[in-house]
Amino acid sequence: MEENKLIVLSAPHFKSPLTTKKIMFTVILALIPAAAASVVFFGIKALLHILISVVAAVATEFVVQKLLKKKINITDGSAILTGLLMGMNLPAGAPLWIGAVGSIFAIAVVKEAFGGLGQNFMNPALAARAMLLAAWPSQMVSWVTPIDAIATATPLAIAKAGVPDTATLPLLWDMFIGFVGGSLGETSALALMIGGIYLIYKEIIDYRIPLSFLGTVFVLATIFGVDGINSGLFHLLGGGVMLGAIFMATDYVTSPSTAKGRWIYGIGCGLITILIRFWGGYPEGVSFAILLMNICAPLIENYTLPTKFGKVAKVK
């Protein structure tokens, strides 16, 4: 018999090279254009926000896993991703500590308290954003203009404030590039789309969720919006819908795993976003839309189970 021991595994003996860690780092890579754009538009403050959020998320993950005597898994990239998304969801004018608070909440409460990776029922970064918005409402809307960092309002807030005035509303082109007020990572639709296309091409995310989410927002905004200003395109490029549809709603853990379920989930996200934007109290509804749909995801999945192969009236 051989001196060296053979490894006997259950089939298959071939496995795809894709791992959880690779997925996490691919998503992080896809977020780099938008993160870089935020640094270009909002300067060093943006970089600090992002770094502080990431460090806080990873540190929290480490401490919690140590306290719970779990295996330390901070290198799998999931905490880095949560921290990165947290940072990108902050307004540039917010105080620097706020990202750290958000990340600690995201990891310790939303993720680890529910069992860690794969067990959370809400997207950690989004839940933390909602918490911050409730706890520090003024800091969380301290929007500033790109480059010169003067206090400003987001395009959605301007549109919400009253009869839209073409003079005060930003140009669609500026919104596409990201030259408007807003959370760090959400202003540049272009940079986000580059990341999104990369993720779909790499088959990391399913096109169904972003497509149905963005499609629903576009169609509903076109129907209910004021033509030309409060239009479909305006709502697609304004606010966090791009960031949400591409990077947050597609979070595997909190979205359905069935194909049909993903369509319904994406449409639901788009619908609630528009409901809040048009008729709700807030100018922006993406975070709440995704969080609400996160909660519905298991239910949607249960109602959209795939039809098994050969499910027909049995012969004889």
Binding site: G116, L117, G118, Y252
Partner: peptide
């Protein structure tokens, strides 16, 4: 092996 991340 990691936890299932529900990627589907």
């Amino acid at each position: 092996m990691t936890e299932c991340i529900h990627c589907g």
